[in-house]
Write a protein that binds this DNA or RNA. Structure first.
Length: 156
DNA sequence: GCCAACGTTGGC
DNA sequence: GCCAACGTTGGC
């Protein structure tokens, strides 16, 4: 199957690119997603080798800042079973886990951030989920959209 | 910090 | 199964 692309949103106050790079092998599980649409993507659609646009929300301006790669496909989110975690979900069971994660590895930072206002103005990117359904925290990206953003992030 | 958009919950 | 109330996200 052809490689697919995704956009993962993070709040850099909480867990941004800097934190991902500090992880062992620059790899971390992507935990805490508690939205069913995003869950379905993590569980069913996102595969090893897929490309990830790493996006910082809550920034001025919000922007795609780095590229990452999926290194492990969907498995149950351990935080849902951890009573001390803010992501603990008492209704979830090991037999029938409700929430899923994937592992991603940091590949490289873009030479410059590609900002949301820019993305809105760029022909070919106006159909992105990011522009139209901004609250979805894990979302599909078309290959042509991915290429355009990577290219924008190359130029100074 | 505000608030619009939108997802979730729960009473009926 | 509807929908009002409520909580959260995220751009500005």
């Amino acid at each position: 199957m052809a490689k697919a692309y995704w956009l993962f949103k993070s709040d850099p106050e909480d867990f941004g690119v800097a934190e991902l790079k500090k992880c062992k092998n620059k790899t971390s599980l992507w935990d805490g997603v508690r939205n069913y649409q995003a869950r379905n993507l993590l569980r069913d659609k996102i595969k090893v080798g897929d490309g990830v646009l790493f996006y910082h929300s809550q920034e001025k301006p919000p922007a795609v800042v780095a590229l990452a790669k999926v290194v492990r496909a969907g498995y149950p989110d351990p935080t849902q079973f951890d009573k001390r975690s803010k992501y603990y979900d008492p209704k979830s069971t090991h037999e029938d886990p409700r929430w899923f994660v994937v592992d991603i590895r940091h590949e490289r930072d873009l030479k410059r951030p590609v900002t949301l206002p820019e993305i809105r103005e760029t022909p070919g990117l106006d159909k992105m989920v990011l522009v139209n359904r901004s609250r979805l925290s894990v979302q599909p990206v078309r290959p042509d959209e991915y290429k355009i953003i990577v290219k924008m992030g190359q130029s100074t």
